[in-house]
């Protein structure tokens, strides 16, 4: 649909959030607690942290929680009764105040869980989610969205994008039907406006490389020693994958208590040695460098090939979270000039 332009002032935005919560929708927004900003349930606009550039973790847990029941079972003497998850009962969720990179992250994630066999649990969560993003006024040294086809005012993945234009007002872009439904139900809160040039209100972020160049370079460097060099200080944890808005790899685990049990899907990471370890002891990706290479190839070569999109939105969370300063933008820049 064509983008609808509106204005909303901050008191009207506070009312909008109150209306969401009063109508039973769950609103998740960045909330600062003990110095860390994370997505958490909010009741009013006062709860929300508008300042932090990027929450530690992405907003992906709203559609892909770190642990989630995919079925449950009851064992009897000679039978097993398997119960499905009732994904028709998931709540309506509003992601509010996330950054455009977070919104963009839902797209590669969706591409993983859709496909020939559709993951209905993920799909149901995504369908119940409305994304109201806020453009970035600031960027930090880790941000590189403009190098991966994103930007501080990018509308991709958002249902509504807000851009702060004055101390009291946001320029509103209604991007999707879901966004329009919110507009239609709350017309009293929005004011008409012509389209405006957002550029003066957005962070300036220099493009460092293009994802197309990375994609092209990866064609010839699978056996390069660059992977050993880059991964040398990698400690082999999964922090990068778990804070990434686009990483969708998971594990499936059973847990039984007495006769009842739950089968969970939980986050997993290609950085872990055990991720690909065969029962025989053989491991196709035995070295950390191979696992690091997999991470880069998956996002910049395999996903473009399989799903016609890139698996990185340039939020820089992996770099911020890395205990040993494995900075993905730095590494991609190295690859771009090989």
């Amino acid at each position: 649909m064509e983008i609808i332009n509106k204005l909303i002032d901050k008191s009207a935005l506070a009312t909008l959030i109150e209306r969401f919560t009063k109508s039973g929708k769950e609103v998740f927004a960045p909330v600062k607690s003990k110095g860390i900003s994370e997505f958490a349930r909010v009741e009013t606009i006062q709860d929300i942290d508008f300042e932090t550039i990027a929450t530690k973790q992405s907003a992906k847990s709203l559609v892909f929680p770190k642990v989630e029941k995919i079925l449950s079972y009851e064992k009897t003497f000679d039978d097993v009764i398997v119960n499905n998850v009732d994904y028709t009962q998931f709540p309506e969720v509003i992601a509010f105040g996330n950054r455009p990179c977070d919104a963009a992250g839902f797209i590669p994630l969706d591409a993983i869980f859709a496909g020939e066999l559709v993951d209905e649990i993920f799909k149901a969560r995504l369908e119940k989610l409305t994304v109201i993003s806020i453009s970035c006024k600031k960027a930090d040294d880790y941000c590189f969205c403009t190098s991966v086809n994103g930007g501080p005012g990018n509308t991709t993945g958002s249902d509504i994008l807000l851009t702060e234009t004055t101390a009291d007002e946001y320029f509103v872009e209604i991007v999707t039907e879901k966004g329009k439904a919110i507009l239609d139900a709350n017309t009293d809160l929005f004011k008409d406006t012509a389209a405006i040039d957002k550029t003066p209100f957005l962070a300036k972020l220099e493009q460092q490389f293009t994802q197309e160049v990375i994609n092209e370079k990866l064609n010839g460097i699978f056996e390069s020693d660059i992977w050993d060099k880059q991964a040398m200080r990698c400690v082999g944890c999964g922090a990068c994958a778990f804070v990434c808005p686009a990483c969708g790899c998971f594990d499936i685990q059973d847990e039984t208590k007495g006769k009842n049990g739950v089968r969970h899907r939980c986050w997993d990471s290609c950085g872990f040695k055990i991720f690909t370890l065969h029962t025989s002891g053989h491991n196709p990706r035995e070295k950390q460098a191979q696992r690091w290479r997999q991470r880069i190839y998956h996002k910049f070569s395999y996903q473009p090939e399989q799903q016609k999109l890139f698996g990185c939105v340039g939020c820089g969370r992996c770099s911020r979270a890395c205990p040993s300063d494995m900075n993905i933008a730095e590494h991609l820049k190295e690859i771009a000039v090989l």
Binding site: K66, V235, G236, C237, G238, C266, S269, I274
Partner: peptide, 24 residues
């Protein structure tokens, strides 16, 4: 409770050198 089991604590710890961690 906020732990996401990324095992950064284990991976960064010089004393967590076991080839196969008990959790695995």
């Amino acid at each position: 409770s906020p732990c996401i089991k990324c095992y950064a604590c284990r991976a960064s710890c010089p004393m967590c050198y076991c080839g196969k961690c008990n959790v695995e």
